[in-house]
Design a protein around this nucleic acid. Structure first.
Lengths: 214, 214, 214, 214
DNA sequence: GATGAATGAGTGTTCATTCAT
DNA sequence: AATGAATGAACACTCATTCAT
């Protein structure tokens, strides 16, 4: 079947590619260097990957898919819960915290890959992928925000509401990135996350308090 | 002196460079295109600018210098004030707010340039310049933090203290960036800043509250 | 025997190849594309065909062989007839016309294939195949020409004789090509052929008349 | 000014390019080979020529422009003449012959270049340029044809008229090509052209005679 | 102050073909 | 009869930079 060799080749290629992408970033990375390092010709690379972008996705795609999965399933759950939501009910932020912890664990499991996506994806098709995560979170936070305010539809959100929620979504992402890039391991990140979670909650109430219409 | 012509040439070059850098980002920008657009040969460019990086600095250097200046002088003032600081005194956050407003005004005065630095500097020597701003702010916030806590030396800061202060510095920068990229003009930015300032203050207290040793 | 599968594979390959060759021409056609379209690996292609050129011949070989056959058998007949030829005898051009009609019918029967040979064979071993047809016709027309002139041997032909005969052979081929590429079907081609046959006959006499030695 | 060197470089490049294009045809020609042969780097080539196609035009463009010029000015003259045309007047075919002779002279002046265009342009932007010449001639011959027939407008032409005129235009081009590729010099070509001119005139009348509506 | 020419290394990508299995 | 993997050379083209004039 030639299965052994082929898997090995792909694996080598992915390893060499990761090394090069991390070192130089997507744009400056050289496919020739990658192939040379993998001990393979460029033709072989193109047998397994459509193009440079596809190779990049080969390196970081799986972790991203998992991240997407966690967030997606969390949001589906939430949809279920909100069906039985009645105004005045307490919105459970602990659930959010649990998800965040899951995310942090994933981030550190694939530390190199996520760092690569964050700092080295420019020029690739994934250069805005973290913004997409922020957009996903934006939807989530909008829902929570409306629930807290007793809005029955997102259409009731004012421009200012939307702005602060959007900011929060972005900031949530930045917190994850900050933890990933400033903590040496998962354990430390989880410890620091407590304060950061306090920060974002405090921030939220602080922002709302300073908005006139309350 | 031929001063007229030379200034014109430099000006044209800077304009064309800005256009190209904004459109393509530092790395993908082509000096050839810039020269063609400026109606000038590459040799002329290299008479005025050392290399690609120097040209980039020529485009965004001045706004960055002004930003740096605002922050620097603010911090020098602060140093003066803190000399006469005695524990128990109220730390004036309103001063911070005033500086932030100055910064926002500057950001919108040179909107294109700062956006360029934020999104298109990768590959240039300025790719980390916003991190340097965060580092500057980090020093500032450390000082304030210590004052609030009654520390007499930064050496009294715990690891956790340092972490949250570092985060705040980064987040402050992100707030500026968020305002710049999400508000259509200075006026709107200043309006939204209120809530965001509330956010960061609230965040601060929220973070501190959640830290055990308090 | 596995005969069924193999025939299917070859058939698919030939179909896909024809599509690709027509679309891109011999040189720009990609064996990879052909195999992908045929749902087969390149190895399979190379089991049935020696190389790219052989594949091209696989597509257009049969029609070309038939064309060659028609012309060949026509020329053999002619050889027979000319054995019983005596000077002064009328040379029968109607026979030529009959052959031409056979050719036109064949051309339209395999319209795509012949168009492919005519416009897309460059780079392949068949790029000059229509010139070879012209050379075949050249022999034929030389014979007819000599008969008309009362020459007993082709050696009696002058340089000018040879030139005009050669031209006629080429032009005959061009007429076929013109009909193939400018008429939408066999029926229209046969109708237009009448005028074109008139043209070539008129041309012949016109050419001869303008040659001094007559 | 560097004028001397630059002109030399371009000249060398064009010479090497012509050699390579003639030998291999447009598609198979290698820019690398051309540069190597010219003793120049590929970058230098791209300083003078936009791309491969531009280089090809650099080689054969001038002759083509002259050919176009001859035909164009001839057709403008004709337009003038036809203004004073009255039905029944003799249409002067001698003028056509004079133009043809001019063309033949041009063809042999730039023999290599025209042969290149005819046989090696496939894949370049000039691959259909001889068809465009035929189209130019088509307009011309339509005019002459209508004059001969006493038509007052081209709209009176039947489908068959158009077909035969179109064929003649193509055949006229083929005659030029045939002379170029089968005669060793201008002198021989001009001599053979007489017979060929007789051929085309004879062909014309032969075609018309065989069309029913006369 | 500025030109125009040239460098030389580099880019991602594609190709027909081969061959062990 | 056919696969899947790999080769290795080639491709057109772009780049920042240099330098004599």
């Amino acid at each position: 079947m030639g299965n052994d060799n082929s898997k090995e080749t792909v694996e080598k290629l992915l390893q060499s590619a990761k090394k090069e992408f991390i070192e130089k970033g997507y744009m400056k990375a050289s496919l020739r260097n990658i192939c040379k390092d993998a001990g393979v010709t460029t033709g072989a690379l193109y047998f397994f990957f459509k193009d440079k972008d596809d190779l990049f996705r080969g390196v970081v795609g799986e972790p991203l898919r998992q991240l997407h999965g966690i967030l997606q399933s969390h949001m589906l759950e939430e949809m279920e819960e909100l069906k039985s939501y009645t105004p005045g009910m307490q919105v459970d932020l602990e659930n959010d915290k649990a998800v965040a912890i899951k995310v942090i664990k994933l981030l550190f499991q694939y530390k190199e890959d996520f760092e690569l996506v964050i700092t080295g994806a420019q020029g690739s098709g994934l250069e805005n992928v973290m913004d997409q995560v922020a957009d996903q979170l934006n939807i989530h936070y909008s829902t929570v925000f409306c629930a807290m305010r007793g809005y029955t539809s997102k259409k009731q959100m004012t421009k200012e509401d939307k702005f602060i929620v959007h900011w929060m979504a972005h900031d949530q992402v930045d917190i994850f990135i900050h933890l990933l890039t400033h903590c040496k391991n998962e354990k430390e990140a989880l410890r620091q996350f407590d304060a950061l979670f306090g920060y974002i909650i405090g921030g939220w109430y602080g922002a709302i308090k300073s908005m006139k219409q309350f």
